[in-house]
Design a protein around this nucleic acid. Structure first.
Lengths: 109, 109
DNA sequence: TCGATATATCGAGAATTATGGAAACATTAA
DNA sequence: TTAATGTTTCCATAATTCTCGATATATCGA
């Protein structure tokens, strides 16, 4: 991942509503969730949510597909993987790598 | 790491000057670098840099110590580790864990 | 003490982002 | 068609963030 993509992803995730939306999408993998349900779930007006979802999509952290009247969003975990990899490798020059893997790998599924 | 701390760290890193400053600090571990040198290095006015450094410190991503007339900043890799761990475990429910570790661990030092 | 150097804080303008009402668009069912 | 439903886009306002000149603070050496 390039620095500019990383900045965009970091910016997308650094907002409470969007971070919660992303987490919600992760919990609903792999089926995804319609925009309206995400909005209801987070108690946010649907047009506001729509704007936030567009930002997540733009950052590569989500994708959408139309399904009838609904637009179903899914998390894109590959981008999160790329972001984390960027933070550990390029940003930290591998210096945060080993301890992070050590403290994290027990929680993997 | 709590969600609110994560949002603060994400926000701190989602700005070009600050991300570059952090990367610069990582490259200068473990000695650290005086504020003025960071500013010069990134061609940013010293007061602007000072503001950005304060934001990094506030997010726990840097620490400072006075050394004579200078204030020397160091990266706090533990916070980065915590952030990455949060992203992989809590945010992604461990779903991004294994692939990320797989693609990253070869680059660790 | 004073002057020089290094950094932080203040304050204000510019730029960006967040928010949500209203309207437009898309899809379905009748 | 038309009405109902789900979503996005448009637009304006509010809030936040960025930037940097001017000034204040801290430290040092003379």
């Amino acid at each position: 991942m390039e620095t500019l993509n990383a900045i965009e992803a970091l910016g997308a995730l650094s907002q409470e509503t969007r971070l919660e939306a992303f987490r919600t999408l992760v919990r609903h993998e792999p089926e995804g969730l319609p925009a309206g349900e995400i909005a209801r779930h987070l108690s946010v007006p649907q047009n506001t949510m729509s704007t936030h979802l567009a930002i997540l999509v733009n950052a590569g952290l989500a994708v959408s597909r139309r399904e009838g009247r609904s637009v179903v969003y899914r998390a894109r975990l590959a981008t999160m993987e790329g972001l984390v990899s960027y933070l550990l490798k390029d940003c930290c020059q591998g210096q945060a790598c080993l301890p992070t893997i050590e403290t994290t790998k027990g929680q993997c599924r």
